[in-house]
């Protein structure tokens, strides 16, 4: 689980630079919430690219999460990024005035997709490549909105567990205030991942590390001191979210089919 922070910083900044170069982009763009993951992304991008080529979009819904918005603005000011704050409430409210709901998850997902939509539009306007900010823990648990916050062109943080992001954040000099925030998907105020999952991140990451990286059988993980229910819950979340990590299946009819035997790399001719 332990990472060497300077080495990881070097790898991830090299990755950001090289991918932009391959796809002929000079600028990178990402959504900055003021939480830990997107702040770490901001720090990395600011090291990889010129600050004028780094665009942070801060996309609050009305006055909610106002502390996070302030933190995001402070981060982009401190790092000298180009940033823009866009209130998404007019677009989201226009939709909900026709299709009202009280379901917080649905609303949160809709907002995440509204942000994605704005991010992609600005990516086109600015000719900037979209960087994702989902970490390995979230990706494995499916703890994100498909086609929402999970949407991006490249994801520098996708192979780091939440606890490793914390290690990296400390090394990068992310302010204490942001380090201390409870991780939240930000679907509604007061939501925290740990409350919702009923598990703390240290345990989640340990269990995921043993299951995924070490391929340890469940019985051995139980023997190493974790509760059966916790392990079962994590396995269930992983299985139920595989669809978020794959292209949708296509029924195979022809002799060569996308997703089956039409096999080209992402970096095709780059």
């Amino acid at each position: 689980m332990k990472i060497n922070e300077p080495f990881v910083e070097k790898v991830l900044t090299a990755f950001i630079k090289e991918e932009l170069n391959k796809f002929n982009f000079k600028k990178g763009i990402f959504g900055l919430s003021g939480g830990l993951d997107s702040t770490v992304c901001a720090f990395l991008v600011s090291k990889a690219l010129k600050s004028t080529n780094t665009i942070a979009l801060i996309l609050p819904y009305g006055k909610s999460f106002s502390e996070d918005v302030k933190d995001a603005q402070e981060t982009s000011r401190r790092l000298g990024l180009k940033s823009r704050t866009i209130d998404i409430s007019p677009m989201v409210d226009a939709y909900y005035s026709r299709f009202p709901t009280k379901n917080r998850i649905e609303m949160g997902n809709k907002m995440a997709r509204e942000r994605m939509s704005i991010l992609y539009d600005h990516s086109s306007r600015e000719k900037a490549l979209i960087l994702g900010t989902s970490n390995k823990t979230e990706l494995l648990l499916g703890y994100g909105t498909i086609h929402g916050d999970m949407a991006c062109a490249i994801n520098p943080l996708g192979d780091l567990y939440k606890t490793q992001i914390r290690q990296l954040a400390l090394h990068l000099g992310v302010p204490d205030k942001i380090m201390k925030k409870s991780p939240s998907a930000g679907l509604w105020e007061g939501q925290t991942d740990e409350k919702e999952l009923g598990l703390n991140y240290d345990d989640i990451d340990q269990i995921l590390f043993l299951l995924v990286d070490k391929r340890m059988p469940k019985k051995d993980i139980i023997a190493s001191g974790f509760k059966t229910e916790a392990i079962d819950k994590i396995i269930r979340l992983m299985k139920n979210s595989e669809f978020k990590r794959k292209l949708p299946p296509i029924p195979k009819i022809s002799s060569r089919t996308i997703g089956h035997d039409f096999l080209y790399p992402y970096d095709w001719d780059r």
Binding site: V11, A14, F15, E19, Y266, D267
Partner: peptide
């Protein structure tokens, strides 16, 4: 050296 599809 270099990256291909994230492999480094």
């Amino acid at each position: 050296v270099g990256f291909e599809d994230g492999k480094h």
